[in-house]
Every structure is written in C-alpha cells, then in structure tokens.
Design a protein around this nucleic acid. Sequence first.
DNA 1: GTCTATAATGCGATAGAC
DNA 2: GTCTATCGCATTATAGAC
Lengths: 182, 182
Amino acid sequence: MEATIEVILEEGYAAATSRKVAARAGVKQALVYYYFPTMDDLFLAVVRGGAEVTFERQRRALEENDPLRALWLISGDARATKLNTEFMALANHRKVVSAELKRSSERIRDIETAAVTMVLRAHGVDLEKYPPVVMSMILTGMARNLRNEEAVGVTAGHAELSAFIERFIDEYSSAPSPDRDA
Amino acid sequence: MEATIEVILEEGYAAATSRKVAARAGVKQALVYYYFPTMDDLFLAVVRGGAEVTFERQRRALEENDPLRALWLISGDARATKLNTEFMALANHRKVVSAELKRSSERIRDIETAAVTMVLRAHGVDLEKYPPVVMSMILTGMARNLRNEEAVGVTAGHAELSAFIERFIDEYSSAPSPDRDA
DNA sequence: GTCTATAATGCGATAGAC
DNA sequence: GTCTATCGCATTATAGAC
C-alpha cells in the first residue's frame, strides 16, 4: 500500500489522505483502514520502509571499492530526498513519525560514518583533525540540500559544489597514499 | 496577520488553516479572507516576509567585522530554518509558493556569496580552488541541516560538526594573512 | 473592518453486508 | 479481503448584517 509514497511525492504529505491513497492503489477508502488502523500507522510504515531501503543501500556501499562516491550518489537520490523532506515536515505534527525518523536517521548516520572512517583511515588522514562523522554529515547533507533546492528550481552554485565535492571524492577513491594530509 | 508563522512552527503548515490562524490572531475566520482573498495569498505573504527579514539580516552581516560567523549564526536561526523546511514542503503542492521560494533563495544566496567572497579574497585564498559560492553553500546549508535534525531529536555528530566549522570560521576571522592556503 | 451564518466539499474512522 | 454507506467534524470560501 505504498502508493502513499507516490501521492506524497506528487502533492505533498498533506494530500496523502486515505481517499487519495486508496484511489491511487485502485481500492476503496475503507480498505486502507483494514491494513492500517489509523493514518499514523500508515505513515509510520512508509517511513520505516523508506529508511530500510536507504539503510540497505548504504550497507552495501560499505563493501564497494569507492564508498565515498556511493555515499554521495545514494544521499543524492532525488526520490528519497524529497520523501525525507516531507517526512521532516510531517514529523512536526505527528510525534510517532518524529520518533521513527530520529531512529532511522541515527541508524543511517552510523553506517555512513563507518564508511567514511574506513576510507579516511586507509588514506592516513588525521581523524582528530577531520572527524569522519563531520565528513559524512557534509557529504550526505550537501547531497540532500542540492536535491531540495532543485525541487524548487534553485540551481545557483550547484555545478561548483558538485565539482568541489567530486574533486574531494576523487582524491580518496584512488589507491591510498598514507602520508597525505587533507 | 503573521500569527500564521506561529501556527506553522507549532503544528506544521497543514495546520495553518484559516480558522486556526484567525483564532491565534484573536479574530474570526472570515476576516482572514478580507485581508487575503485565498490561503495562497496568505502563504505567499508569509514567505515573502520571512525572506525579507533574512535578507536584511544577511545584508547587515556584510558590514560586520566577522561576516562568516554572522552567516553561520543567521543561517542557524532555529525559527527561520524550521519555517523554511515547512515552506519547502508547502512548495511541493502550491506552485506560487514554489516560485517565490526560488526567488528568495537565490537572492539570499547571492548576498551570502558576496560576503564569503569578500572574506576569502582578503585572506588571499585561491578562489578557483575554493569557490566562494561553494563555501557559502556548505556554511549556510550545514547550519540549517543541524537545526532540521535537532527538530526531530537527532544530535549525533552535531558537536563535532559545529567545532569543525567554527575552527574554519576562526581561521578567517583573524587578521588577514594573504599567503595562507586553506 | 469585523461580524454571523451558511454552502459545498473533503476528512478520519466505523458498521455491517458479502 | 473488499465493499457500500454513513457519522461527525473541519475545511475553504462566500453572502450579507452592522
């Protein structure tokens, strides 16, 4: 019943009503309440499912040979980013959503930071001076910010930022050279 | 009639109905439609007003002796950030809001970038290697991201990121030393 | 300018048939 | 499992009194 996602992406979370979701799924409104007792339960399931997908993608990225680039690409997924923004706004007035979003975000942040730690350590970077969690937050945060801005049509500085980040990623995707600084 | 802002901050944009806004402002519902023909007009006025306030604050920051820190602090304003997130979600299904948000964002980005350009140039930084617009986007973007995460209770990595950014700001708030690299 | 009253629509949720 | 039908309530917006 995650036709909910489509409605949210197209018209915003406020449009994700039991009637519209049902129509999109090709069923009648009352059936929504057969699977999800309340709308809160539906939203919770959608948040959980979305987080699970992202978490799995990030987990697999850990095993790739270019984790930083994978992190950058996954975090910049337009669909997931837009959904996340809607969930953030939704969390503002549905506390069960807020709690779930917190759990999911921290879980994903942990695995992202693990990936960055691995890469920086392999390249002999001073982890005190350049904490992996910070690099992880900037990398994933800016990827999301770009998509958010694109969603309203803002593109100023995007090319420059992408080039800058990709230059950074390139530096750490080559073979390790342990005596290099940042 | 910007009691609308309070309602949005407390319960999200979807709760900003003519009735709730009117109640908060201490008037009757119908009066909202006397000042704003439709709810779209009301939201538009709120977005415009909020952007104007931020723009003016950033403009004044340009004249201060520590523009980078001012940028960081203004961009991390909890109220403005939360409002902006709601507007982003609101823009998803109200195109007039989307257009206004685009205009405002680009205008603010321009003045932010001007401030960063000034500082970097005064310190003799290679502007090709470290484009001001990129530094401006990271500085303001991450400030907002921190507040957004705090809103759902996520604080992992926040202390580290703040320390990292502030170390950067400190470097460029002291007297210029033109032969330094980043 | 501010109000009361109301029309038309859509909402979450439930009852109960099949 | 899926449906029809419905309750009670909130919504945007308008008409019209004062």
